[in-house]
Each structure stands twice: as C-alpha cells, then as structure tokens.
C-alpha cells in the first residue's frame, strides 16, 4: 500500500509540473468513441500550440461522475472546462462552474445557456444528406431499415430527419426502426438484428436500403447482408461519421455506399478557438458553431 502510494506520488510530481500555463479540463463519458477521441485530439493539438495545460478525463459512460469531475476541476480552479456530454444532464456541474466564473465550452455536446458555445456538426444536415441519398438511389420506392439511437440526443436528431425524409416519399416504407445494443460497440448487435430482418424478408429485392444513424450499425448490416449472400440485391447502405472501417467498406464499392465525414479534429480546434476567445474576453455570440462536413462515397473514400 505504502509503496503504491509512493509510486503514485512520484508519477504525479512528474506530471504536475507545468505551472502558470492556462489549465483546461476536458471531461467526457464517451472517450471510447472514435469521433470523441479525434475531437479531443484536435483540441489537444490546438491547445499545445497555445501552450495550455490540458487534462482529459474520461468517466467511461458515467454521467454523474462527469458532474463530479466538473466539480473537482472547479475546486482545482482550472481556467476553462470543455465538455463532451449532454449539458442538460450535467447542468448541476455547469451551474457550479458558472458560479465560480469558469467558462465551459461544449465540444459536440449540445446547446445550453450555461455553455459559452457548443461546437459541433450539423446533425440535421448530415441525416438529410444520407437519407436523401438513399431515397434517390432507390428512386423513391422500396423498404428501408433504419438503425437509430434515440437515447443519445445528437444521434436522435439524425433519426428525426431521416423519418421526415422517408415519410415524405409515399412509396418508401420504413420496414423497421432498430435500436441496437451498443455496449459491444454496436457492430455485432446490429449484425444480429439485420440477420433477423433478412431472415424475415427472404424475397430478393424485398429490402431496398439500410439507413444507419452512425457507421457501426451500417457495418453490422453490411456484414449481415454479405453473410446471407444477398450482396447482389442492390441493398443500399449509408452511415454517418465515415470512420476508418466505414471508409474501407465504402472504398470497396459494395453495398455500403455513403457516409458523412464529420471533421472532428476541426471541431476540437474550433473549440480551442472558443476557449481562447474567453481567455481574451471576446464576446461569443453564436451559441452553436457548426463545423463543415463532407459526404464520403467510393470516389473519395480513400
């Protein structure tokens, strides 16, 4: 026990050197997500250019712990806090930060009056692009399987837009609106769900497309379709986020045809600009800052 504490002490002394630099705590329950990782790396890169001292804290899915870590960072008197978690759920911590006069910036978090600003991609626009892509590819007619995740607000809004787009085509029928179990990352369970749907719809051509609110279910659906030997039925799959695995699949020119690349690194850099603005006492008017996105297809996937 004692030696353990001693070794912790030594490692801490080494790590807690940088004095006087601005300190920024970055707090998220979702660091395991590749997008979150890229955004935070983008933030860290921009912050190191500015000479800030950044501490990244992952609470591994625990929202209440995110509040606790915000409170701890306030106690520690950091100069700014960046959060990647729904602000409505951590408003207890945000209120304490406001009372302590510490600015909090949202990094792909959600809009909230207690934030200086939230930096994100336009989820409505991304979902509109992929759902319209599908509607056009299947020529406005056919059955579509949707993979959604309404528990996470930034993904939930994507589903809402896709619902509206598909609902606007009288000959498009939403066959199923699936919420996969994401505890294993989302691919495996999406695959299993898609296998069941394929089994229930054995007629070739009976499924026109799979619209996924993010890439993992799209990859799972692709595996299911290929596993069932139904890759030549022309089932169109789209995802959102364009993660490396999705880009690979899209580049191969199979059923997975399109995804949307969010520029997470740019998001992190933009969040660093907002933080820098608060340090310089600049007025921040826009409460949400959108970072541009790009559609990824077989033409530009690599």
């Amino acid at each position: 026990m004692k030696t353990l504490i001693k070794s912790v002490a030594i490692s801490l002394l080494i790590s807690s050197s940088a004095a006087f630099a601005e300190t920024v705590a970055v707090i998220t329950p979702y660091l395991a997500q590749p997008g979150t990782q890229a955004a935070i790396e983008g933030f860290e890169a921009a912050a190191s250019d500015k000479g800030w001292d950044v501490n990244v804290i992952d609470t591994a899915g625990d929202i209440a712990a995110a509040i606790s870590r915000i409170e701890d960072s306030i106690t520690q008197n950091v100069d700014a806090i960046v959060i990647n978690v729904d602000p409505a759920q951590v408003s207890a911590g945000l209120q304490s930060a406001k009372d302590a006069g510490i600015p909090v910036v949202g990094l792909d978090a959600g809009a909230d009056p207690l934030l200086v600003a939230n930096v994100t991609s336009n989820g409505y626009a991304m979902a509109a692009e992929t759902s319209v892509y599908i509607a056009n590819r299947i020529e406005g007619s056919g059955k579509v399987v949707m993979f959604v995740f309404d528990a996470f607000p930034p993904v939930q809004i994507r589903g809402v837009i896709a619902d509206a787009v598909f609902g606007n085509f009288p000959d498009i029928e939403v066959l199923d609106r699936v919420t996969p179990d994401v505890s294993d990352g989302g691919i495996a369970d999406s695959r299993a769900k898609m296998e069941a749907i394929l089994a229930a719809n054995p007629e070739p051509g009976s499924i026109g497309a799979v619209w996924a609110a993010w890439d993992q279910p799209a990859l799972g659906a692709l595996q299911a379709i290929e596993g069932a030997g139904r890759e030549n039925e022309g089932i169109v799959i789209t995802g959102i986020d364009a993660n490396p695995q999705a880009r690979d699949a899209i580049a191969q020119g199979g059923n997975f045809e399109a995804s949307i690349a969010q520029d997470f690194a740019a998001m992190g850099a933009a969040a660093a600009e907002v933080v820098a603005g608060t340090f310089a006492n600049k007025e921040q008017r826009a409460s949400v800052i959108y970072v541009p996105t790009k559609m990824v297809t077989a033409n530009n996937a690599k």
Binding site: L4, S11, L12, D58, T59, D72, T75, Q76
Partner: peptide
C-alpha cells in the same frame, strides 16, 4: 481517490487501474 486523483490530474484510465489495485 477519485476526487483527489482528478485534482492531481492523474490520467482517468490510470486512476481506474489504481482503484482496482488498491
């Protein structure tokens, strides 16, 4: 441990390992 190590800015994953080891 959680509170103190956050304030001392120990990496959150190192923190988990330490809590388990303790």
């Amino acid at each position: 441990l959680d509170n103190g190590m956050t304030q001392m800015r120990v990496d959150s994953y190192v923190r988990e390992i330490l809590v388990g080891l303790i």
